[in-house]
Nucleic acid binder design. Structure first.
Lengths: 158, 158
DNA sequence: CAGAAAAGCTTGTAGCTACAACTATTGCTT
DNA sequence: AAGCAATAGTTGTAGCTACAAGCTTTTCTG
């Protein structure tokens, strides 16, 4: 476990939206902790690896420009370079290059990466189902997702 | 800036709740990035410091047992020890001890910490208002917060 | 009441991430 | 076409965090 149980102190900064932000932060941390624990206790790689594999698996040709991948994962380009390096070293990814623009490089999913993703997916999905389904209807989940997306858009643009 | 703009690739793992999880993750990352940027560009300490100060300021006697503080922030005890060390070194906190149980130590807010919090608060509140208020009604914010809290509870207990 | 178990916190270490600086390629401007 | 700016990625470095092991104090148990 990650040394975290239930938060008893539910105090939050005095702002009309501070409580919503606090709830978002704590919920994110709690679920991330659960996912991490589930993965490591099943001897799987850490969560960021899963996110990379999952994102690439849904991209056309199962590859993505480094910049686009960083943007999708909401991490820095520099961080992604090293993350992808680790996945390549593990044989899960391959770095391929673009013919028409020699600046760009692609992170490309390899068969081994696809296989690993298929193994990890059930673990992640099971945890998310526990976390979300238990207390949320499908309609609520949809509302939640839409609200979060709107917030994110205003956070990016504003 | 933190090298992050808008996520165009909105793909998510194929799960009924994968989209909600993806939205939560990206929204959290986006807002965290905004807050960090706002704080550092105003020459303020990083976000975790603010969270510590804000949490302590709302606790009785402006102090909290290390374990409770770690739980409230959803970080590990080991991590909190070092985080508090840094705040103490900066003169913002003080480590006090319990008379009746010599194992426990308290993180206690000092005047300098309270002052700094008062300076940081407007910056954080302003950013959150931009992120949340722009696209969310008060009712939606409440629903969002309640939904997140329920998810967190099931994530902690289940 | 002695010994074992549990609780509370700290320390050592490894790994990950952001930030800033750098290289290389492409696009724009005149 | 030369020069400057913008774009794409990588690398070096510092700082933060989790994990595991450790120490001390308290509580439980026979």
């Amino acid at each position: 476990m990650r040394e975290m149980e239930q938060a008893t102190a539910t105090k939050s900064p005095r702002s009309s939206h501070g409580e919503a932000w606090g709830a978002l932060t704590r919920t994110h941390a709690a679920i991330t902790g659960r996912l991490q624990e589930a993965l490591t206790s099943a001897e799987f790689p850490p969560l960021p690896w899963y996110e990379v594999l999952a994102t690439l698996s849904e991209a056309p040709e199962e590859r993505l420009k480094m910049g686009d991948l960083a943007e999708a994962l909401v991490i820095t380009r520099g961080g992604l370079t090293k993350l992808v390096d680790r996945l390549i070293k593990a044989g899960l990814l391959e770095r391929t290059f673009c013919e028409t623009d020699r600046r760009v490089s692609y992170a490309t999913l390899m068969p081994a990466g696809h296989d690993l993703l298929d193994e990890m997916q059930p673990v992640v999905v099971a945890e998310l189902d526990v976390a979300f389904a238990a207390k949320l209807t499908a309609a609520e989940a949809k509302t939640l997702r839409e609200a979060l997306d709107r917030i994110r858009d205003s956070a990016c643009g504003g």
